[in-house]
């Protein structure tokens, strides 16, 4: 197959996978509706748009509210949607069947990745728009930093998702493994209990994990600070290891 045919094939597969993803109502619900629901409900809490002494004078509406929604969008799509869909395909023999055609099973992985990124974009734009236009979310003060965090978030978090999607053999294992990956990361990222109520060591350990680093990084750039070096390092290491692992260990069946 030449390059033109490959691009056309990935485009076709991506559109097909996007259609299939959207036909699954739970995917749309968790990836798109849940983050929005959280934004609106948490963003409507009285006082969240006022400076909070517990947050050093910052407002919740500029920090933990939007960061939570964004982080959840990423986690739902990268760590649940992507791995579960691929491992289900693997279990059903979809990848194996594809391996007998001129199309490559890895192209299906790429297609799902792109489809999920498109869904992520829609989710983030919707959350951002509603946040800024309806609630009082301010535009991120460190805009270049914001773009960098989002990009590194994509590379590292979806990198992990890609790795999971490359190796998990079936749907049942996917349910278990994705949860085992998400739960501790979510705890460290303050998704269950806001970090200000957790002991200090949680934040320190979290700084070494991609999901918490992403959330904290978002909050930093939102109020105008720059990205912390340790977060940059976490994103980089995660990205390299995850993508290398995904390519190396990808299995058809």
């Amino acid at each position: 197959m030449n390059i033109a045919m490959n691009i056309a094939m990935i485009r076709r597969l991506t559109l097909m996978e996007l259609k299939l993803n959207l036909r699954d109502w739970s995917a749309t619900a968790f990836g798109l509706v849940l983050p929005m629901a959280l934004l609106v409900s948490l963003g409507s809490i009285p006082g969240v748009d006022q400076p909070d002494p517990a947050l050093d004078g910052r407002r919740g509406i500029d920090t933990w509210v939007p960061s939570l929604s964004f982080t959840l969008s990423f986690a739902m799509l990268a760590w649940f949607m992507l791995p579960v869909v691929l491992s289900t395909y693997r279990e059903k023999g979809v990848l194996r069947r594809l391996a007998t055609t001129p199309a490559r099973p890895a192209a299906l992985l790429a297609a799902q990745l792109i489809a999920n990124l498109l869904m992520l974009a829609v989710s983030l734009i919707a959350v951002g728009a509603v946040g800024m236009l309806v609630l009082d979310v301010s535009v991120p003060r460190n805009m270049p930093g914001f773009v960098v965090v989002l990009s590194l978030g994509v590379l590292s978090l979806f990198g992990v998702g890609l790795l999971l999607a490359s190796v998990i053999p079936n749907q049942r294992a996917a349910s278990g493994i994705t949860w085992m990956v998400f739960a501790p990361s979510a705890f460290l990222a303050g998704i269950y209990v806001p970090t200000q109520f957790l002991p200090g060591w949680v934040a320190k350990v979290g700084d070494l994990t991609p999901l918490a680093a992403f959330r904290t990084g978002l909050e930093d750039v939102w109020v105008g600070d720059s990205l912390r070096v340790q977060h940059l390092a976490v994103f980089l290491v995660t990205t390299v290891l995850a993508w290398m692992g995904a390519v190396r260990f990808f299995r058809n069946s």
Binding site: M16, K19, Y89, K92, G93, V94, R96, R97, T101, P102
Partner: peptide, 26 residues
């Protein structure tokens, strides 16, 4: 052209869609 045992397709993929997709590979 190969038909393997235990080869399924995604649940919500429609018959016509599957065939058109596969046709595009050749």
């Amino acid at each position: 052209g190969v038909q393997l045992q235990d080869g399924q397709l995604p649940d919500k993929l429609r018959v016509g869609e599957a065939l058109e997709l596969y046709a595009s590979f050749y």
